[in-house]
Nucleic acid binder design. Structure first.
Length: 683
RNA sequence: UGGCUUAUGGUGUAACUGGCAACACGUCUGAUUUUGGUUCAGAAGAGUCCAGGUUCGAGCCCUGGUAAGCCAACCA
């Protein structure tokens, strides 16, 4: 499929440029390099979609490479979860690689570096080495080990590898430049001693290579053409290139690193460390808690691979820090599920509805559409009877005319069933409604084809038959944090912003019996409520549904709901809001034209001047006056205001001090046009 | 007090070699609707961080500022 695309993100542009400069497209090769020390999250999805997307676009291989150089933090569990998530997203890697597969090669190259006098063993403490390193604004100094001979270094390094030294006692460092403005170039560590079993190499090694030494060389070994990573590695690029310089064979492809901004999502955190803290602190139930921004959490919540890929696509790639609003993610999943989710009915907060004229004891099977968006989706059966549950908030004894739901004396449609009219309510001693009594128009059954069945009524309600309903648990989720960017506050921990009401469990919701056969992969729309999916905690006796996301709800927006949630709409500055529509647009037009006024000349200029003058006929002085305050730089706008002012004065507007001040400021301006307009008024 | 990077509607991204700042989300109208969903039609909202400069013309080029992010782990 050829994608219609006239603009590339800057990474794609780099590749386009490389190709144009003669780089052969069959040498294109990418990689996704996770460290197996945590679960993948929605931020990783950006990198996954970028790398694998590039692979698909150019039909180039994309390796999955586990960057497993730290046996203290990495585990097989994470390897399995990461592979599962990538496959679930629908991507196929060319080769499954591990940095640990290159340990021997890396070691051999390190020996070479020592022999070339480019690396040395340092036996100082971490503290001492840190102090010698200097600070970003002051250069570092050489330590006593820096001048050791090649033979001494070779011997020491061999003993490190042989396990003769304690963990932490010696390191191998590159010998670069202790005075470099780039701290990473001040003799970075290549190897450290870690006496710990590795998930793949076991106890074969007790020295492990560091990230910088490993990553670029792994790219080189795999002949990755474009090594894409996030911005915080920008500084590492100099080191990446330095290492390559030491061992690069010109006959082979030389990888290059490029950096893009990591993606943040509003109202959540996105670092593995913080996510781990949520898991270990039991704030959530696990990495796949449906409130987590992990791929596995989103999957359990009911998100689809398509929705996540769409989200990555819409979010784009750039080099600036940003926080993408969750509403975009929600849009993506709604859009996907709207097309595919099976429509069913469930009542979360029930109140009993009795249809007094429906034959007592009678039940009938109705037909319900599976998905009105998909004509081929078919129907399913739905039992109806004279005693139903409806949503408590769908009834009000007396309500304004904007309430489209059930009230006393009003008609509404029961979805896929009959039109009913509210007649009376039954209340308990404390005044709570326990039953609503209504009558049905028995001719109005949906799909019956009668005239009554096609009558228009204002509202439609979802319902379940009490006798036939199945009970199930429903879990509703809200954002995990109350702050838009919980980890952006220097003085406060992100944990202080935890939303205490991020999980709401409804132990007994009532659902149509169709749902008893639901499976984990099914996606449902509970009509009028939102999208739901079965949770893995479900058993055949106790079904558990997760709410993926609610439907858009323009009714809820109108009602300033007393909800304590963090959904407060941000105030938007709506300038000029108090002014009549027509006049505002005339002034706006003037501003628009005037903005570019100084760019014009000749006929165009004359035309613009005439347009402004004409529009000014519809502008009042009160509207115009604020423009007198326009910054001196915005000459065009001031000229426009001057022209408009002249029109108003001709119409009989009295001169006041503001007007005089504006005119004299115009006369004193450097811009000739402005001076001319001001002169024109002066007379 | 050093270095690197970034700065475009509320949010996220576009704008080719300088040429009327575009798209999506969100917001607001209206129509349609057996989901207050969907769909459809429309609107509001940005002088492109600031100050200068070059140019007929600057978001883009030049100079100088400002702000934000990253950089001193034997983490990746």
């Amino acid at each position: 499929m050829i994608e219609e695309r006239d603009s590339h993100n800057f990474i794609e542009q780099i590749i386009v440029d490389d190709l144009a400069a003669g780089f052969s497209s069959d040498k294109l090769r990418f990689r996704f390099p996770p460290e197996p020390n945590g679960y993948l999250h929605i931020g990783h999805a950006a990198s996954i979609c970028l790398n694998f997307g590039l692979g698909e676009m150019y039909n180039a291989p994309v390796n999955l490479r586990f960057d497993d150089t730290n046996p203290a933090k990495e585990e097989q569990e994470y390897v399995d979860a990461i592979k599962n998530d990538i496959q679930w997203l629908g991507f196929q890697w060319a080769t499954e690689c591990y940095s640990s597969d290159y340990f021997q090669q890396l070691y051999d190259w390190a020996i070479q570096l020592i022999k070339d006098g480019k690396a040395y063993v340092d036996g100082q403490s971490a503290d001492v080495m840190a102090s010698q390193k200097g600070t970003p604004s002051t250069p570092g100094v050489a330590g006593p080990f820096r001048g050791a001979s090649v033979d001494e270094n070779l011997a020491l390094f061999a003993r490190m590898k042989a396990g003769e030294f304690e963990q932490g006692s010696y390191v191998l460092r590159a010998k670069i430049d202790m005075a470099s403005p780039n701290m990473l170039m001040r003799d970075p560590i290549l190897y450290r001693i870690v006496k710990r079993a590795h998930h793949r190499t076991g106890n074969d090694w007790c020295i492990y290579p560091m990230y910088d030494w490993t990553h670029g060389e792994s790219d080189y070994i795999e002949q990755i053409s474009h090594s894409l990573c996030t911005l915080e590695f920008k500084m590492h690029r100099e080191l990446y290139d330095w290492f390559l310089d030491q061992l690069y064979d010109p006959a082979l492809l030389r990888p290059k690193q490029r950096e893009f901004a990591r993606r943040n999502l509003s109202y959540t955190v996105m670092s593995k460390r913080k996510l781990l803290e949520l898991v270990e602190g039991k704030t959530v139930t696990g990495w796949d808690d449906p409130r987590m921004p992990t791929i596995s959490g989103l999957r359990r919540r009911g998100y689809t691979p398509d929705s996540i890929r769409k989200f990555s696509d819409l979010s784009g790639i750039s080099k600036r820090d940003s926080v993408t609003d969750v509403s975009l993610l929600e849009y993506c999943i709604r859009e996907d599920l709207n097309k595919s989710a099976t429509r069913v009915m469930a009542v979360l907060d029930p109140v009993k509805l009795v249809i007094t004229n429906y034959p007592s004891g009678k039940t009938e099977m109705l037909e319900a559409e599976n998905n009105p968006e998909d004509p081929n989706s078919g129907t399913h059966e739905l039992p109806f009877s004279g005693e139903l549950y409806i949503e408590r908030e769908d009834f009000k004894e007396d309500a304004g005319n904007k309430f489209f739901r059930l009230t006393l004396g009003n008609e509404v449609r029961l979805k896929s069933a009959y039109i009913i009219k509210g007649e009376s309510v039954v209340k308990d001693a404390s005044g709570n409604i326990t039953e609503i009594h209504c009558t049905a128009d028995l001719e109005s059954r949906s799909g019956s084809g009668t005239e009554a069945s096609t009558r228009k009524v204002k509202g439609t309600l979802h319902w379940v038959s009490i006798q036939h309903a199945i009970k199930a648990e429903v879990r509703e989720y809200d954002r995990l944090f109350l702050d838009e960017a919980p980890d952006s506050h220097e003085e406060k921990s992100f944990m202080q912003f935890i939303n205490p009401e991020s999980l709401k469990v409804i132990k007994e919701a009532y659902m149509e019996p169709f749902l008893k056969d639901a499976s984990l992969s099914d996606k449902f729309q509970f009509q009028r409520l939102g999208y739901f999916t079965l949770d893995k905690d479900s058993t055949s006796e106790n079904l558990v549904f997760n709410k993926t996301v609610g439907l858009r709800d323009s009714w809820a927006k109108q009602n300033p709901a007393p909800s304590p949630q963090a959904n407060q709409p941000k105030p938007q500055n709506n300038q000029g809001g108090g002014l009549p529509q027509g006049q505002r647009s005339a002034l706006n037009e003037i501003q628009k034209i005037a903005k570019k006024y100084t760019n014009l000349s000749g006929e165009k200029l004359a035309g613009a001047r005439a347009d402004i003058a004409k529009l000014a006929e519809e502008v009042s002085y009160e509207e115009l006056e604020p423009l007198f305050q326009t910054a001196a730089k915005k000459v065009g706008t001031r000229i426009g205001a001057m022209i408009a002012l002249s029109v108003l004065l001709n119409k009989g507007q009295d001169r006041n001090s503001e007007i005089e001040a504006f005119i004299s400021a115009g006369l004193a301006d450097e811009n000739e046009e402005l001076v001319n307009e001001a002169k024109g008024i002066k007379n």
